[in-house]
Structures are given as structure tokens and as C-alpha cells.
Design a protein around this nucleic acid. Sequence first.
DNA 1: GAACACCAGAAAAACGTTTCGCTAGATAAC
DNA 2: GTTATCTAGCGAAACGTTTTTCTGGTGTTC
Lengths: 335, 335
Amino acid sequence: MANIKDVAKAAGVSPATVSAVVNDTAYVSPALRARVLEAVESLNYSPMSAARNLKRGRSQLIALAVADLHNPFFSRLVCAAEAAVSAWGYSLVVFNSDEKPENERTILARIRSLSCDGMVLVPIGSPERYQQFWRDPAAPPLVLFGREIGDNRFDAVTLDNVLAGRRTTRYLLDLGHRKIGSITGPTFLSTGAGRLQGLLQAMEERGLKPDPEHIRSGDFREEIAYSVAMEMLQRPDRPTAIYVANGLMALGTMRAVNDLGLRCPEDISIASTDTLPGVGGLRPRLTRTEHPLGEMIDQAVRFLMDRISNEDAQTQGRRVTFPPELLLGDSCAAQ
Amino acid sequence: MANIKDVAKAAGVSPATVSAVVNDTAYVSPALRARVLEAVESLNYSPMSAARNLKRGRSQLIALAVADLHNPFFSRLVCAAEAAVSAWGYSLVVFNSDEKPENERTILARIRSLSCDGMVLVPIGSPERYQQFWRDPAAPPLVLFGREIGDNRFDAVTLDNVLAGRRTTRYLLDLGHRKIGSITGPTFLSTGAGRLQGLLQAMEERGLKPDPEHIRSGDFREEIAYSVAMEMLQRPDRPTAIYVANGLMALGTMRAVNDLGLRCPEDISIASTDTLPGVGGLRPRLTRTEHPLGEMIDQAVRFLMDRISNEDAQTQGRRVTFPPELLLGDSCAAQ
DNA sequence: GAACACCAGAAAAACGTTTCGCTAGATAAC
DNA sequence: GTTATCTAGCGAAACGTTTTTCTGGTGTTC
């Protein structure tokens, strides 16, 4: 592969001049500039980023480490992140911790050694895990995404999960439902806990309290949600509406509804937070609160760019919480 | 960040020795090795990959450039590729050409300058586009994925699309269907053309020929498939079964079926190639042929690893075509 | 016409590794 | 005891850039 010296030789100039032309970093007379560009063209030269990175100390790489790439929600995140990152001239390196702490550890080490210029992390586990990462001056800027870990030193972008739960539940309450159940995510995750808390808040506002038997964790997984829903819906005092905490579980719940011969929304109303890509056309259309995913990842990347350019940046973590949007389908009926 | 010299100084050895220890590339006496490791530990040293890459001439990066990241199929591909690549100690850089040639051009340039050690490409457009890429000795090994472009110089991993179409159609024929329609992908893509061709072959085997009005392109998109299906299903001589060429369109077709008050499979049988993630629980469960995606990407990565280690490799492109699996749901009924 | 400022471009150092060739010391052989 | 053999570890070059410093030539000004 042609290197900068080859180009310099071909154009009869010094490597410095080639660099100046290629990076547009200093004035070069039109004549020379043309010769250089011609040489670049004919040799099909493109600067080797390993060398450039070594010299410049940055890599033009942004890492995205998600907790579970199998979950379509995170797939959508990858898609949005790729777009956001490449708009700033960066490339996206994708990692999947698969909810396993040891994987996450490996990934963090790898990101550091790749000298990624920044990273977006959907964290698993508790803040202690990131202590060392935080202290390490060589670590790239970090934005936590989606999940709260109770540590305000990092920048963080999240959905207002409590609001999501509250808003969705209020909608069900406004339709007249009183016996509202929920299939929640894991409560050790802020996404699971927050959405549940929002539901509880909304019901409490009306002086209601859910039947404990109607609040069950589906672990954010389709099959588990299915079996939990099967059981809940077969109870004699089954709820009239269910708030499901994510898209995969919403589908599992719908399946249970169908398998039991129940009709949605006539027999049971279903509302969720989040949905699945591509299923927009399914009937009944799901009533749900959604993440403004594009805006969220844009914000996360903006945080990173900010830290990257402002080395002297405040050490305090900034956090932005996005409100969910309530999108009406026809999976809920008045009670 | 601590560098190799700092470690060397701390351990009282030369940088060469540190390198030998870190990479386990030469014998170092136990005593020294321990001192070095201790220094590495206490300084939290990790080799800077930019420098290492510069010296070694590789980057431990594999690029995956897909044609449309919004399509859930390619999201699944990302997930599978991340796993395959990291199993070999590489990291995955993800790009989305969004079916736009100019994006693809940019991406190829970027991959080259990142010195990615290999790339998996879901190509858009015709082979000429990759000519220059092919001639460039600096370009990393390339495996084409999913789509045929009629150029046998590259390694390629594909699904046997013709077989997918044929197998699915035969299944419908065996159920007694004679008036079989299809919502196809774009026929300028091998995936679209192949699946359609498979359908035609299967029908021809039985001396049948589809009504031209029953063969329509849905462009691999949900909404287009919806409107095409709406129209096709409202024809007085509507087909009794439809073969839909991908998962997104299958959902659109199902939606049209529902919106027209038709029942599947009683009124119309639907079978597809590919499906959507997470919708495994939907009713009716889709009868479909699926990509063995994990095996396919594993094969692609193995091709790359092969080229990476065997510099002297054959210049001839190898190609592996995977047979689709037919998975029975309950979206098809006997006619 | 001389002194000076200015500027385009070149030369060279530096970034952090790996790796080749070498040295010095130990061991073994005679 | 001398020489040959071997080996652990070191020094230094090299990878391909960017960037700082330097140089030589041109133009300006009094």
C-alpha cells in the first residue's frame, strides 16, 4: 500500500506537504497542491489510520456496548447509533455483554486498548464496577445509556421510566380500568423498577393498589412473559388490563391472550412500554409508550463529542432524561 | 496512560522484555516475568493498539457493512457477527450503506483506511463497483454475504434462495394449492430474483404457471407489501396461497389479510422466507424457510480468518451456499 | 540598496509498539 | 583453562503519520 512517502516522492514534495494537503492543515500553493492530489489519486493513497491515530492520539472510533444484542430494542439502538456516530465522522464498534459481568469487563478492557475516543454503555451491574474505569485517565469519555446505576459522575442518557409507567397506566385508568396488572422487567434494573414504580404511582394517585398477584416479572423475555401471562390470565380474578414493560414481553403477552381464546381489547386491554421493529402493522396495534431513540442516542453522542473536544470539561456527570411518547393503538378498550 | 517504557522502567527491564512478557512471545525468566507483570498490574498498563497495529500491520478489526440496518434481518446479522468475530479475538465495526451506492463507496474507503483485517459486505449494486477494491492489494480480505453479484473472484456466503423459494412453494403445492401468488423482493437483487425463480421452478415442475397478476414486488418493505397484498387479495380471482419473500413483507401481508377480514390459514395460506425476531409467538405462526444465520456468518468469518493467516491463499473466490430450513407454523392450510 | 518581515515548503522529531540483531554471561566440552 | 555453544535480555531500528522547527527565497520598506 502506498504510503505518504511514496506520494511525496511521486509529487516531488516532502511528506509534510502531502500531510498538509491531505488534512488541509496549512496553505499549499495551488500548483503543488494539484501535483499532490494527482499523486494521491494515481497511487490510490489513503492515510493509514493506525499511524495517524498513534500520532494524533485518537482513533475515530466510538464503542457501543449493549447489554443484550438479541433484544430487538438494542438492535434498533445499534442502527440509530451507527447513523449518529457516522454523522460526526466516527465509526461504530459494537460489543455485546450479553448481561454477563465478565463479558463487560473484557469489553471495557478492549475498548480501552482500542483507544476508542468515546463509548456508549448500557451498563449491567452496579456502579463499583466502573470505579476503576472512572479513575483511569486513559479511559475514554463514557456515556451511560438507558439504565441508571446510581452514580452521577458519568454522563447519562435515559428514558424517564417512571413517567413511562405512569403515563401508560394513567391511560388505562382513564379508560376505566381498576384491576390493572403488570408484567415487569427485572426490578434490579432501573428500567424494570422505574416502569413498575410509575404504575404504582399512577394507581396510588387514584387511591388504588394492584393485587400483588397481578404484578409479576417477565424478565424482559418473550417466553417468560408468555407463561406469566398465561397464569395471570387464568386466575379467576384476572386483571382487566395489563401493562407490559417491554416490547418482547408485550408480544409474549399477546400470544398468551390468543392462546387462551381471549380477545384483545374486548376481553383484556394490553399496553406496553416499547415495541418491536416491524410489527407496526400487527392487529391489534399495540398502545404503548416509546423511546425517542434517535434523539436519545444523538444526545449521547453529543455528550461524547463535547467531552472529546473539551478536555478541561467539568468532572460532574450530566444527565438527560427523555420523556416517553404515548402512541395509541387499539389494544386497549374502555372498561 | 502508562506506556511500555514506563512499565520497563518500573520493572527495571527493557521495553523489549516487557513486550516479550505481554505477548508471551519469547522466554523470560520467572523472576523477571513476575516483576514485569507486577509493574503492568500496578500501572494498569495495556498496550496501545494504535502503536501495536502500526507495527504489526493489522488492527484486530473486522468490518461488517450491511445494506439496510433498519431491516431486522440485518440486525440479527449484526448480533450473530459480533459473536462470531469476538470469538476469534476481533472487534466488529458496523456500517450501514442504506442501499445507497455513494454511502457504500464512503464505507469501503473508510474500511480500508481503518486497516480492518477483513470485511463482510452485503453488497448493493453491480460487481464493477468492487473492481478497484479487488485490485487494491491494500484492501482487506472481503467476503460477500447474502447477495450474489455475479463475480466469482470473491469469497461469498449465501442462502440458496432458489431452493428457499422452491421448497416453500412445493410445500404449498403439496397442500393442494394451485393458484399461488408471490410478493417478491426487488428482482435486481439475487435474494429477490432467486426466491421468485424458485417459486416458478416449483410450479413448473407441476406444469403450473402463476397468474402474472399474482406476482408482485413488495420491495422487501412492510408497507409496500401491505398495499400490494391489499390489492392482490381483493381481486376476484385472488390466489389461495401467497409466498412472501421476506419477514417484513410477511408481516405486511398478514396485516392486509386481517384488514380485509380474511382468516389465515382458512381463507388464505401465507408462507415466507425469513421472519422477524421476537414474533415467534404470533398467531398464526408463520410457515417459513429460514436462514441458518449463525452458521452462515461463522462460515464467512472462517473465510476471513483463512485469508488473513494464509497470505499466499488462492486468488479464486470460494463460495458456500446454505440450504434454508423449512419451519412449519400454522399459516398454511390444505386447499 | 540594505535590512527586515514573511511565507512556502522541507527536515526531523515524535507517537508507542514490535522485532531483529547483538552482547555478555553462563554452561559445557575438550 | 580455554574455547565453543547457547541463551536471556537489551539496544535500536522501524512502522506511517503529524507537527514543530527551521531554512531559503521573495517581497516590502525606508
